[in-house]
Amino acid sequence: MSMKLEQISLSVGSQTLIENVELFIEAGKVTSLMGASGSGKSTLLSYISGTLNHKIAGSGRILVNGQEVQDLPAERRKIGLLFQDALLFPHLNVGENLGFGLSSAVEKPHRRKKIQEALERAQLTGIYDKNPVTLSGGERSRVALMRTLLAEPDALLLDEPFSRLDEQIKQSFREFVFETAMEKNIPVLMVTHDIQDTQVAQSMSGGPVFMLEQQQIKPLGNDDMTQTNTRRVQ
């Protein structure tokens, strides 16, 4: 399994965000993409997932397992997307949120079991009927991840998934996300501005790190990363 981006261009009006970008994302690894805010990282994820705002023009091919998906509607691409705010649907309880992700092909008697399994997997037993508003930030994040995974995506996109979490929760959750993703053996693309995220991703999964700068994506070597790190610290 893999995901491949070819000749991707994005623009808002006359302003070009990304021009003719190519990227290969390997399965089982967490590929990181860094870049300044406003550089178009998140927009790129929207384009890949098929949820681009209609005011933004996008073009280029997206291949998931060799299949072109760029002309499919979002729901048929099978590309999961996880945001920094664990966005649970506020009018549904935890179980219903997870059920929303689960494919309708799973028959009724098995559904609840599957959801319970997912909750156990995320060490969240006993919150099935809870209102998402009452959960802690860490709990919410894990529910959101499980919801995405229950949909059995062929690829996973992470949009700054850890930036809103407390330092303590962040570490354990980050490891949990990467482990789970690697276990599923699907391509993962993570957009972040936190150098720690990329370092963990690299050390755990061996995924490469890229930088989005001046409308182009360039690979970052270890030296560059240190540099970026220093720049951040300053």
């Binding site: 949820t51 945001f83 929303f100 919801r147 949909a151 995506p153 996109l157």
Partner: peptide, 11 residues
Amino acid sequence: SRLIASARTLG
């Protein structure tokens, strides 16, 4: 819009 994007990417 990200809530909507979540729903769409969940199928």
